[in-house]
Write a protein that binds this DNA or RNA. Structure first.
Lengths: 163, 163
DNA sequence: ATACGTGCAAACAATTTGCGCCATG
DNA sequence: CATGGCGCAAATTGTTTGCACGTAT
């Protein structure tokens, strides 16, 4: 399954080096876990995955690393309604999340017009948009014929949720 | 809005009764605090305000009440980036929040076109929109030449608590 | 060499809960 | 007058931190 890990730098590791972050063994492992994650894991899950690659990593280090990466713009923290923060690698181009209220599955999507609209609204309120957050909570429709209008990228789900 | 505080029921208290919730003294007090609040207080702040009206209320009760009200659709929980949850009475008509990243001030606004856009996007993804969350984090512009294009309803306020 | 990262456990902060007592419907 | 709420403090949960030691640059 996982193949591209034999010595090659992950994208995130590369970004760390670019920013002059000290690359320790545990950071390399966490970077790899994050690069290979195409979902939105929370710290506990990251810890679990990292531990499988190297058992001598502590949760504290995961917390510290995740914070460091976030401060350096490499990671982004998300809140999908559960009690813990979830993370995903920073990508180019805004994308949003739609959370299936039934399964917890997260669907990513982009929508340029929307981003533009937000910028306009913000300006009209007399502000300059720094960042924004948008989450849609929705229920899957029984059946819908595809109608390519919006580009969609799917992501796996994880964990529980609890309002 | 605020109707009265002498002997009249507040809007929230009325909603509680409608839903058959037992009205205790503390719930009445909390309902009143919430009805009179036009900002987005967190539990600690609600507790502070409630305590001024009736000193024998405990934080635990505020937490319990706030949860109860949220479960009954009377209150909505918000997350504006701080560490604690903030609350506001459920209103008709979606409105959004813009948080001034410098002062923490919250500006509310509505934008029908935006709500409609979200519904369309959701449908295109094969879902039915249940609810959504949007927060803009922005910085105030030095100078604002007015030019009304979007209908904007401001309901700003924010409170660094300090009696 | 030396500043910085790490593990561990204790410390924290926000929120929840168990348990007798009390009030509401 | 029975059920459900309340206060209090102890318990949980997610996250942070102090300290002594280890390691990347």
């Amino acid at each position: 399954m996982v193949m591209d890990s034999n010595g090659l730098q992950t994208r995130i590791e590369r970004m760390c080096i670019e920013r002059g972050l000290k690359m320790t063994g545990q950071r390399r492992v966490i970077a790899r876990v994050l690069s290979e994650a195409h979902d939105h894991p929370d710290v506990e899950e990251l810890y679990r995955r990292a531990s499988m690659l190297d058992a001598r990593i502590s949760v504290a280090t995961v917390y510290r690393t995740v914070r460091l990466l976030e401060e350096n713009g490499i990671l982004e923290r998300r809140d999908f309604g559960g009690s813990r923060a979830r993370y995903e690698a920073t990508e180019e181009g805004d994308h949003y999340h739609l959370i299936d209220v039934e399964s917890g599955q997260v669907v990513e999507f982009t929508h340029a017009a929307h981003a533009e609209l937000l910028r306009r609204i913000t300006a009209e309120l007399g502000f300059d948009l720094v960042s924004h957050r948008l989450e849609l909570f929705a229920r899957r429709l029984p059946d819908v014929p595809e109608e390519q209008t919006t580009q969609v990228a799917q992501t796996e789900r994880k964990g529980r949720s609890r309002p």
